[in-house]
Amino acid sequence: MNVARLVPYALAAIGLGAAANALELRLWTYGEPAAGLFPFLAATLLVVTSLLSTREKVPEEEAIELPRLIGYSAALVGFCLMLNIVGFALAALLFLIAVLTLIERMGWKKGILLAALFAFSTWGLFEGLLSVPLPQGMWRM
């Protein structure tokens, strides 16, 4: 079964959960709309339209290089986690090295050089020149 066909069902389930949560906030109090009214209406609309969408055609699946996509997604997650530990500059360097050398199959020397160039010039531009605060991580780098 095409995984994309499950998306409208997942959205309908989110809508049902949100509607139940909105009901707990109450819809109408003291003759005025309460906090739950608008989310409830939005969630109900989501359930109805998602269920209607299940009858629609899903676009033809194009061939995806799954290992490539999984590799990139893992690198993204790793990048986010590393930001919290080693800060922007080092996390960006490691992320770019991983992407350029392991996923894009660039040579190690060229990959590391380009990664260092992009990571440190971006960091220098924003943190050094423009004083835009970037994540420092637990190591305060």
């Binding site: 409208p8 959205l11 989110i14 809508g15 949100a18 608008f38 989310p39 209406l41 939005a42 969630a43 609309l45 989501l46 339209t49 998602s50 209607l52 969408s53 009858r55 629609e56």
Partner: peptide, 19 residues
Amino acid sequence: GGSRAKAWTMVALGLLLST
């Protein structure tokens, strides 16, 4: 682009996120 039902689904999701 795409069907009206799908467009309205995205409208509903956007409204829900805004709350």
